[in-house]
Amino acid sequence: MRKISWGREWLALVICLIHVLPFYILATTSFKAHDDFSSKWVAPGYLYLDNFVNAWREADLDRAIVNNVVVTVGSGLLIVLIGSIASYPLARHRTPLNRAVYGVFVSALIVPPLTILVPLYKFMVDIGGMNQLWGIILLHVTFSLPITIFLYTGFISSIPYELEEAALIDGAGRFKLFYLILMPLLKPITATVIILTCVNIWNDFQFSVFFLQKQEMHTITVALSGFFSQYNNYIGWVAAGSFLGAIPITLVYLFLQRYFIQGLSSGAVKG
């Protein structure tokens, strides 16, 4: 077998340590008592959890986490459903009309929806979607459709059509065809779509902060930002809040990291 180069292993270790540094500082800061003014580089030699207790209570994190889960799961389901069925005719029937529709969806990949914030806000007020989880879900779904349709259309085009023809001749209806034949084949790309869109939705701040202003509707990021502007001086609380806010997605990432990295690279290579 190939020889191990210890120089490279050491370099890899140094790179890891540099990249972990921010998390180390986050940890020392969040475990430090309010009257401990030692440097952030120094780890506290005691166990102190008040920061976490206070941050959890004041930022109302339990409700925020529930809201976050509802928004992310709801959006994810709708994205997969609406995105996959929309891509089917776009991939299989490349009429001039369908090419144009595909072009409209994909061109929106480039331009961030944040640019239409002002009129969008007015529109959400008009349809009663302000401070409603369904309101933000519809927004997330819409803004995730371009990447979803792009990935699904590319993937469906690469599946041989003979498979579907055979099923049609056997008398399967189009819907049966879609759910029994196509859906199972779409599993890998569905995983990519879910990872690419749901991470953004889970972490979203720029839209949630506008459209979920009522406290009962706050998601994690919105709850934290409100909490931070209020308790600016309690740096330990802020750190503990950040710590707690980052934990759920970090755990998911560490368990499923193979899929995260595959999802990103396969999504990128298709592009």
Binding site: A12, P22, T29, F205, L254, I261
Partner: peptide
């Protein structure tokens, strides 16, 4: 050919999945 490749990749990519807002607060420290 690096033994620590998977670990290094996991660590370098980790910040990308954390909310940029939280990342901003972390660097504020």
């Amino acid at each position: 050919n690096i033994r620590m490749r998977a670990l290094t990749r996991t660590i370098i990519y980790l910040p990308a999945i954390i909310s940029p807002l939280i990342m901003g607060y972390i660097w504020y420290f």
